[in-house]
Design a protein around this nucleic acid. Structure first.
Length: 414
DNA sequence: TCTGGGGTCCTAGGACCC
DNA sequence: TCTGGGGTCCTAGGACCC
């Protein structure tokens, strides 16, 4: 049996944990640049705030219901996530951490699930302060379904018989299934399919034809036959991205170069942290697609490196050069990013017979950079091309403190 | 009038996830 | 005026190989 454990309204719960006076009050967390709503407490949902709502469109609701607003604080969420996962790990022989607030656990051989599962939930809540819900079923897809249904029934739901599964799928909306997005739902609608129960009664070939092999897997999973295995060890990543929207539009190539310098520096740091190097570096620019009156431009280019690298100097110089070529005058750019692919382990460096390698000099520079920035704070030592003013940098006006990660921000008990 | 078969790699686009 | 960021997988088509 699989268990899906997920934190309720995770970011909102994490923020409220250190502001107990907000318990029972509406709370929302905004995306980067304070753009749109990405987490809501139950009270905020009841005020009519929807997932993904742009902040400027719900400003009136926020004011009307005195909703507490937070910018996203990923350092805090990352740390709280680690605590939750660590606690979950005590209860499962194998744990597959699926996202920052979700994990699949393997419950093979546990006899009294009805007794065991609620204990997991109570323990995590007691040890971390983060409320979680747990759904249990014979497949991952059904465990996800059970998890969603459990939010209405006290946070735990175990589907351990064909009868229970049948009752659950007949009561579950097809568009809320794991793996069903807007496009698939449109197809279901046109056929009059509303519930997961109606959906799984369609023939297997229908799934294969209309939803590719992923649909075929879903069909099996809905009938209780596991088609998606537990990944106790996550495979190494295929790519690493750093991209951000700008606070204001960028219309000058030299300002764009500043942003790309920062993003490529961050990307190099991420690669070094994961002990990887990249063979390809993709650079892309975006305009604001919500503005039909602006000229649109979404250029992108992938640069192939002669030797795999994770050095800040290498990646920054490529990113800046490529972005200058992609840039078009008279266009208002809203966002840019860099993607590293062709990832290889740091210590398996393949040299190039026709190209001079510097015998690790740049690696030494990067190591010094990381060491200084770790000791004295991120950005202490950085590339000069990052600029000084950085007016394009993210907006986060409602940022909470680093309660669990910064000594200066630790809560004092009187 | 008639021009093979089997494969890999890469890219772009679509769909979905949290 | 103001609409996030970081991922995965699948498919189709083009270019190329023998």
């Amino acid at each position: 049996m699989f268990a899906l454990c997920d934190c309720n309204n995770f970011y909102a719960s994490a923020e409220r944990l250190f502001r107990p006076e907000l318990n029972g009050k509406p709370v929302v967390v905004l995306s980067n640049n304070d753009g749109c709503v990405i987490a809501r407490s139950e009270e905020a949902k009841a005020c009519g705030i929807k997932m993904g709502d742009p902040e400027f469109l719900v400003r009136d609701l926020i004011k009307k219901f005195s909703i507490q607003v937070f910018s996203s604080n990923y350092v805090l969420y990352g740390d709280m996530s680690e605590r939750v996962m660590h606690n979950l790990g005590r209860w499962f022989p194998r744990l597959d951490v699926y996202s920052i607030d979700e994990a699949f656990g393997w419950l093979g051989g546990v006899k009294d699930l009805g007794n065991y599962v609620p204990k997991i939930r109570e323990s995590v809540v007691r040890n971390t302060g983060i409320p979680v819900s747990i759904g249990v079923a014979p497949t991952k897809t059904l465990a996800k379904l059970a998890n969603k249904m459990s939010k209405r029934t006290g946070g735990v739901l175990v589907l351990d018989s064909d009868e229970k599964i049948k009752a659950a799928v007949n009561d579950f909306p097809a568009h809320e299934l794991w793996g069903v997005g807007r496009q698939h739902y449109k197809k279901f609608e046109s056929l009059g399919i509303r519930t997961a129960g109606e959906l799984r009664n369609m023939p297997e070939m229908w799934f294969k034809q209309h939803m590719t092999i992923l649909g075929q897997r879903m069909w099996n999973e809905l009938w209780g036959r596991p088609a998606i295995p537990l990944e106790a060890v996550r495979e190494t990543k295929k790519g690493i991205t750093v991209s951000r929207s700008f606070r204001n539009y960028i219309e000058q190539p030299e300002i764009l170069a500043e942003a790309l310098t920062l993003y490529a520096s961050r990307l190099a740091e991420k690669l070094r942290r994961e002990k990887l190097r990249c063979l390809y570096l993709q650079v892309f620019l975006y305009t604001n697609k919500n503005r039909e009156d602006h000229p649109q431009h979404f250029p992108s280019h992938t640069h192939k490196l002669l030797i795999a690298s994770n050095n800040t100097t290498d990646l920054v110089s490529i990113a800046v050069r490529v972005s200058a070529r992609l840039f078009r005058a008279g266009v208002k750019y809203r966002k840019a990013g860099v993607i590293a692919t062709g990832l290889v382990p740091e210590n398996e460096l393949q040299l190039n017979a026709f190209f001079d390698h510097d015998n690790g000099k740049k690696d030494t520079v990067s190591a010094v950079l990381d060491k200084l920035n770790l000791a004295y704070g991120r950005g202490t030592l950085r590339m000069a091309s990052e600029g000084y003013e950085k007016k394009w940098r993210l907006k986060h006006e409602y940022l909470s403190k680093g309660y669990t990660t910064r000594w200066a921000d630790i809560i004092k008990v009187k």
